[in-house]
């Protein structure tokens, strides 16, 4: 089992990961941190909108839709099981 660091925006539907870090230079960083997108938090990509953006995620027991501009500022650790 290896882990790989990806952008949250790169996660396909149904994929899970653990938040690695957040780009603090992004203007929405503080808001994302406040919403619980802090390092070490498990997150799952649920479904993409018909036009591919936004995508809904489950985090800390609630569902939230993020645009690519937001989810591109979050890095996640994804473990490969194959």
């Amino acid at each position: 089992m290896t882990t790989e660091i990806k952008l949250l925006a790169e996660l396909d539907e149904g994929m899970e990961g653990v938040i690695h870090n957040i780009d603090l230079d992004s203007p929405t960083a503080q808001r994302l941190l406040d919403l619980g997108f802090v390092p070490g938090t498990p997150i799952k990509a649920l479904r993409k909108a018909p036009m591919g953006d936004p995508v809904t995620y489950r985090i800390r027991g609630y569902e939230v839709g993020l645009r690519k501009s937001e989810s591109s500022s979050i890095a996640v650790e994804v473990s490969d099981n194959d």
């Binding site: 230079d25 036009m51 690519k68 591109s72």
Partner: peptide, 21 residues
């Protein structure tokens, strides 16, 4: 809009501050 090209966030790798600048 549908292709999603030409948007800053999408092409930008999130943790690169130079790119963000």
């Amino acid at each position: 809009a549908i292709k999603g090209s030409g948007r800053p966030g999408a092409a930008c790798s999130g943790n690169c501050s130079a790119c963000h600048a």
